[in-house]
Each structure stands twice: as C-alpha cells, then as structure tokens.
Design a protein around this nucleic acid. Structure first.
Lengths: 233, 233
DNA sequence: TTGCAAGCTTGATTTGGATCAAGAAAGCCG
DNA sequence: CGGCTTTCTTGATCCAAATCAAGCTTGCAA
C-alpha cells in the first residue's frame, strides 16, 4: 500500500522533514494511501476531524456552504497538507473538500498526528510554521477581498500565477473558470467579462492558456503589494 | 515598571499559563509595559515584527490598507495577544494597529518570544493552539464575508455579540459604528440603513446600546451556523 | 460519429451597496 | 457653557456586480 516514493514525498514536506525517523514511521503505520477519481467528496464541513490529509497528486478544492450558497475557499495542489488546524485542535472541519482531478492522497489519523505532536519538538515547531503560514495567507486573502474590486482581484491573481510559474508571461489556469470565479468572489459571467476588460492590458485568454503581453500595463492597473500578493512572507 | 498585577494578567492567558516559570520570567525581563492614549499608531503594516503585543486594558484596532483604501480587520480586547504569527515567523506585519481607547499594553521582543518558543515545549504547544484558533476564526470570517450579504452579516454579528455578553438581549456595541461598518465590509451609511431594516426583527438601537426584542425572528433571518458563528470551536 | 450535458460567453436587466450631499446628534475642549 | 469637530443618519443618485436568458463551445459517453 505504502509506496516508497509516497513516503519520500511526504517526508519532503517542510512539516514532516524535521521530525524523528521513529515518529515519522509511527505516522506512516497508521496512514492510508488512497487513489480517488475526480469529483469525490472527501470532507463535509462540520464532520469531526478524523484525518489530516496530504495531496500527493491531483488537486483538491476546499469550499464552504451556507444557506444554499457555496464558495471556493482554496485549491490545494501537491504536495501539501490540508485542514491541519482542525486535526491539531480535534475540532470539526470548517471547510468541505472534494477532488477536482484524479488524486493520490494520504490520510493520517488525527489522533496519531496529535500524539506525535506532543512528543516530537521538531514536528511541533514545524506545525507552528505551517499554521502561521496558512494564517498569514488567509490574512492576505481577506485583504484582497475587502480592499479590491473584482477586476483588481483578477489582475493581481494573474500576476501572481505568472510569477509562480516562472514569470514568462505564459501559464495555464490550474482550475476551471467557474471555480476561479468563486474563489475570487465573483460570478462566472463576471469573470468572463473581467477577462475581456483586461484585454487592453495585454491579457490573452485561450481556454486555460493565459498569455500576458503587457505585464507593465497590467501591473499599473493591479498595483500588487507584497503584503497581499507575495507567497510565503 | 512591571506591576505584579500586569504580570499576573499575562500569566493568565492560555498562551503563557503553561510555560516554565523561569521562561516566563525571562520574557518579563525584556518586556515593556506601556500606557498609550487613544488614537496612537502602534504598528504599520510592512514593518519588521519587533514585538509581540498584549493588550491588558483598552482596545486596539487591527486594520489594513491598499491603494488609498482602508479596512478594519479586527478589534482586539483585553486580555489578548496580537500579531503572534508575524512575531513567531520573524516576518513583516501584515496588518497595522492603532489604539482606539486609552490602553495598557505589553510589548514582548519577538526575539525573546522565539527564543523561549524554541526551549519551552509547553509554550510551543500553546502557540499552536493560539495560532490554530486564530486561523479558524479567520476562516469563519471569510465564510461570513463570501457567503452572506451585509444585512445577514449584521444580523449574525448582533446575535454573536448578544450571546457573548450573556444572551440577555441587551448589550453595548464595543466599537464605533463606522469601525463596525468597515469590519462588516460595508459603508457607515449602509450600516445605518441596515439597522433600520432590522427594526421589524426587534433590533432597537440607542447610541451604542442594542436591545434585541425578537431574538427568534432575528435568528430566522440570520440563520446562524456554528461553523461560522461559534467562538472557539 | 452523434447526442447530450456541462461549462463558457455575451447581452439585457435588475439590484445591492457605494457615493454624494445635507442635516442632526454627539462628543470634546477652551 | 458655547463652539467646534467628528460621527451618525437620511435621502437622492449612481454604479459594480448579480441575475436572467440565450447561444455557443467543449468534452464525454453511448
């Protein structure tokens, strides 16, 4: 069940890389390695947090619902954990999760995670780094949402994705547009219109392929800020 | 400078209550206890995080700015720390802070905090609990913002404040209305109108004094959810 | 290959909330 | 206690974004 490669991928994550080998093995012993097709509900918000999840391959959408409405909170790409806070606190999940591609996923029982957390100082410290990182990412997302309108959010999103993928001016959207729209806090219709509005700023859209031909102009419009748009600061 | 009462208040916080006495004393040795009048800027976003702050008395507003706009992210009431994540990571502050009342505040040098964090397991664990708590609070705030309109946000805010203050149906707004409006993601004008719209649901406003006379009706409108509106879950 | 379902785009219309513009009320200070 | 500033309220207007309504494209499955 546990491929050596999978274990190595896990170990490569910052959160697991510093811990004692014996503790890592203890985590592995209780772990489930699973393959899921696209469209599977992994987590329903409100459920007790039985597992800490790690995506090894594929993509997972975190979303939330209220009163018949639904919004995308984040998309998780490999290799990365999700819902760490709920696992550590033994509190109900606040977000739901579903696969949006075929996924290879590891489930680590939350009770094991908490046990190792209590014994392994390096792991505890790594958890702090991970949580503070997630917290700060969410602060940035909240600033993005409250301080910018939808066109500005899209423009900055495109600049971020471009930088993340090497800054060449060409990259692929890694999520469906309707999900991107929800993530950015707008409707699919308005995302479509926002893309057209950005055409004069050198934004060319071809399916999922994005080309930015006037990055300077787009930057003037977007006014990106390191305190909102930088990764991992 | 350090009053025994202040130290006891600090020690009473979950985050400091479990640590070794010697480490707590080490933190105190480098600490600054200060009194600030209302309206003082304590932190400007982007500054290096030299201190971890603790409010002992008064109230502090956390806010963020971008491109000439400003939004209230949170109001911190005693006894509580703020900007822990930046301190622990040694990363620049993502939010600004200003006193909105006369405040008694403790400043703990971030380098001391990080040093103790590396040595004191109980403190490290308490930091994890605090951070995960803050993270989850922010997830809830994001859901509130993305899934609800402004009237629903206000209605749920009133129900939360009512519960927090004992559920009697009478309580005081602890922040100015314009700040509340910004926190809720709306303009002061619309907050004022939203209050009037809630009159038929038993919401009576008299300055900062709120009275809820039809909590059941208001609840039907607000549809509160534990996964958005419960404290500390 | 065809047929169907789902996603995307475009246009027309509506609407929630912002902005603008005055007054009214409430602190605050000399 | 005035006189001043700031906040709060209320009304009128405007605008960004949602909704409604078709077409159009894409991708899968029979």
């Amino acid at each position: 069940m546990i491929r050596p490669n999978d274990a190595a991928d896990l170990r490569g994550l910052d959160i697991f890389s510093g811990m004692a080998e014996s503790n890592f093995e203890a985590l592995l012993r209780g772990a489930y390695f699973q393959i899921f097709p696209a469209g599977v509900d992994l987590i329903v918000e409100g459920d007790p947090s039985d597992f800490l999840y790690v995506v090894l391959e594929g993509a997972v959408e975190l979303f939330a619902s209220w009163s018949g409405r639904e919004t995308t909170m984040a998309t998780v790409h490999p290799v990365s954990t999700f819902i760490l806070a709920a696992s550590i606190r033994d509190a109900p999940y606040l977000m739901s999760a579903r696969t949006i591609e075929k996924c290879r996923i590891v489930l680590l029982p939350s009770s094991d995670v908490r046990a190792v957390f209590g014994q392994d100082t390096a792991f505890a410290h790594a958890v702090v780094m991970e949580l503070s990182q997630c917290y700060r990412a969410l602060v940035k997302a909240t600033k993005d949402l409250k301080l910018r309108n939808s066109l500005e959010r899209l423009a900055n999103y495109l600049l971020r994705q471009n930088r993340r993928s090497g800054g060449s001016g060409m990259f692929e959207l890694r999520t469906e547009k309707r999900r991107l729209a929800s993530y950015l806090g707008m409707t699919p219709e308005n995302l479509s219109r926002a893309f057209r509005t950005l055409e004069p700023y050198g934004v060319e859209v071809n399916g999922n392929q994005i080309t930015l031909t006037k990055i300077d102009d787009l930057t003037i419009l977007a006014k990106p800020s390191p305190l909102i748009d930088d990764f991992s600061r």
